[in-house]
Structures are given as structure tokens and as C-alpha cells.
Computed example of a mutant assay.
Amino acid sequence: MKHLGIEEIQEIIPHRHPFLLLDYIEDYEPGEYAVGYKCVSYREEFFAGHFPQEPVMPGVLTIEALAQAGAVAILSKEENKGKIAYFGGINKCKFKGKIIPGDKIRLETRIIKQKGPVGIGEAKASVDGKVVVSGELTFMVG
């Protein structure tokens, strides 16, 4: 297993606070997959407005966190170092549960197809072993 802390993640992807949505990478294989985690705190800025009476992590931010895990996988390949992975599309996305303060999200993105700079990642986010978000993320490396 290849572990990455926050400093190593920031050497691979360009995201920074408050938009870096990974706390650590548990394992990854360049060009193939990455498994990371986000520990959700009540102090997250988005909870102030989403929703004050019932704090729920926005689904689009969960998709972004999955994309960042995928970016670690694709941008850790030697030929992609220093580049950026952009969204090209989101397909087959399903939201199956809520993410609330105190949750530890497991973010797994596996690269299932790539041709040139364009590829697809199969992504799923889970909390306590239950899948809460899944989908296919298309990316373009530029």
C-alpha cells in the first residue's frame, strides 16, 4: 500500500484549502486507482448554509472529492506530473445516502478507460461500508 499525506497530495494535484477535499490517500497505483479519505467536520464552511437546521455535505462536493482521488491516480503518472485533470463529464451518478458531520468518507476512483488525454474513472464514496455516491467521471488531462 502506498500512503500519501496532505503534503504529498498537494505535490500531485493543484487543489488547496478550502477546496482540497482529501485528507489522506490510503493506497494508489499511478494511472490505475486511488483510495482516499475525507473526515467531515461540523466546521466545514458549507454546513453554514447547507443546511443550517440539518447539516448535509453537498452531493456535488462528494463528486469533487471523488474526482480529486481520481486526479491523484492519473496525475501521479510520470508523464502527467505538473498537469491538471479537468472534468469532462459525469455519468451514471447516484446519490444513495447523506454525509453528515462526523462521517469519514472512503473515496475510491478506479481508472477504467483512457485514450490519450481523455479517460473515465469509476468512482464510489462510502461511509461505514455503505455506498452513498457512485458514478462515472470523465476527465481530460491538460
Rank of each mutant, 00 (worst) to 15 (best):
K2A: 14
H3A: 15
L4E: 01
I6C: 07
E8C: 09
E8F: 11
Q10T: 02
Q10S: 00
E11Y: 04
I12W: 12
I13E: 05
I13F: 09
I13Q: 02
R16S: 12
H17Q: 13
P18N: 11
F19L: 15
F19R: 15
L20M: 04
L21W: 07
L22H: 11
L22T: 04
D23Q: 11
Y24G: 07
D27N: 10
G31I: 02
G31R: 03
E32I: 11
E32A: 07
A34K: 10
Y37R: 06
Y37D: 00
K38S: 00
V40H: 02
Y42M: 11
Y42D: 02
R43T: 12
R43Y: 05
R43E: 11
E44M: 09
F46L: 13
A48W: 09
A48I: 06
H50K: 05
H50R: 01
H50Y: 09
F51P: 01
F51C: 00
P52I: 06
Q53V: 14
P55W: 07
V56D: 02
V56T: 04
V56W: 01
M57A: 00
M57T: 00
P58T: 03
P58C: 08
P58H: 08
L61A: 08
T62N: 12
A65C: 07
A67D: 13
A67F: 15
A69G: 11
A69T: 05
A71I: 07
A71C: 08
V72P: 12
V72C: 07
A73K: 05
I74D: 13
I74P: 12
L75H: 05
L75F: 04
S76K: 05
S76I: 12
S76Y: 09
E79C: 10
E79T: 13
E79Y: 11
N80I: 13
K81E: 08
G82Q: 06
I84T: 02
A85I: 02
Y86D: 09
F87V: 05
F87P: 01
G89C: 03
I90M: 13
I90P: 03
I90F: 08
N91G: 01
K92T: 00
C93P: 03
C93F: 08
C93I: 14
K96L: 15
I99M: 14
I99E: 09
I99C: 15
I100K: 15
P101K: 09
K104W: 04
K104R: 13
R106F: 05
R106M: 12
L107A: 06
E108Q: 03
T109W: 03
T109N: 06
R110N: 10
I111F: 06
I111P: 00
I112Y: 01
Q114C: 08
Q114A: 14
Q114S: 14
P117K: 15
P117M: 14
V118E: 01
G119E: 10
G121V: 03
K124D: 03
K124H: 10
A125K: 07
A125Y: 12
A125Q: 13
S126T: 13
D128R: 15
G129R: 11
G129Q: 05
G129C: 06
V132P: 01
V132H: 07
S134E: 15
G135S: 14
M140H: 01
M140T: 03
V141L: 02
G142T: 14
